[in-house]
């Protein structure tokens, strides 16, 4: 297994003539949790979208530099973007289950990818829900609408839906900002378990959360990475004063 799952090299990103990311270099380590922190508007979500080419969907975006997934540049024109997004999946801030049953939510991806066998689908659904730490809570409600679940459960359905397509990298953009403290802790615990199998990049505004869950932390400011280091180091003795000011809440 390679040390680094993804590499970002000299990456610049422009929305028309506004440069949102400036010369970003970052190594994303395999089976580690990398947290991205920084003030609103510093480019965290933009950067996350760079990693699975979600910015392709936005007009006027221009990108320079390279991003490697297992040593292959994902921005080469011949790359199959759908296949890429299967390997590098994303969980969003607000739980966004489809308006259908829990089962159909989780089976959605595998079906799209051509799996029709009922037993096989049952297996995938159970395994994904177990991995998302939701199976025991929800096994009796598999065929009820996912919209009827609590926020924390909905978010875990979304995570299960993502796991069902067996991604290699999981991108999470503030996955628990809409959740209550208990659901948040459940999602955090889940993330810890997931890292055994997946490489995870998580954006969070919650400093304590970044400190609790991540192995590595990158501090973004105005489209640049100011500091990137082992999480313990960032939260005990950051090297850059701007990092210290931000994490201790003395910003601006």
């Amino acid at each position: 297994m390679k040390k680094n799952k993804m590499l970002v090299r000299d990456l610049n990103l422009y929305y028309m003539d506004f440069q949102a990311l400036k010369k970003i270099n970052l190594d994303i380590e395999t089976n580690r949790i990398t947290a991205l922190i920084g003030p609103s508007g510093c480019g965290k979500s933009t950067f996350l979208r760079v990693l699975n080419r979600m910015n392709d969907l936005i007009d006027g975006v221009r990108i320079e530099g390279s991003v490697f997934l297992d040593e292959e540049d994902i921005y080469r024109p011949e790359v199959d973007v759908v296949a890429l997004r299967k390997r590098v999946g994303m969980v969003f801030q607000r739980p966004n289950p489809f308006p259908m049953s829990v089962y159909d939510n989780v089976a959605y991806g595998p079906r799209v990818h051509g799996i029709r066998n009922k037993n096989r689908l049952d297996e995938i659904v159970e395994h994904s829900l177990r991995s998302a730490a939701l199976w025991d809570e929800i096994r009796d409600r598999l065929f009820k609408s996912a919209l009827g679940l609590s926020g924390g459960q909905q978010q875990r359905v979304c995570i299960a839906r993502l796991l069902a397509i067996e991604p290699e990298v999981v991108l999470m953009d503030e996955p628990s900002s809409a959740l209550d403290p208990i659901s948040t802790l459940k999602v955090e615990e889940l993330i810890q378990i997931l890292k055994q199998e997946y490489t995870i990049v998580i954006v969070t505004h919650n400093m304590q959360q970044a400190a609790r869950v991540s192995d590595l932390t990158a501090f973004f400011l105005n489209g640049e990475i100011v500091e990137f280091s082992i999480t313990d180091e960032i939260f005990t003795r950051p090297k850059d004063q701007r990092t210290e000011d931000y994490i201790t809440g003395r910003f601006g």
Binding site: Q208, A211, F235, T236, P238, T248
Partner: peptide, 8 residues
């Protein structure tokens, strides 16, 4: 206050 870094 959950101080961190220098505050802690």
């Amino acid at each position: 206050q959950q101080p961190i870094a220098r505050d802690l």
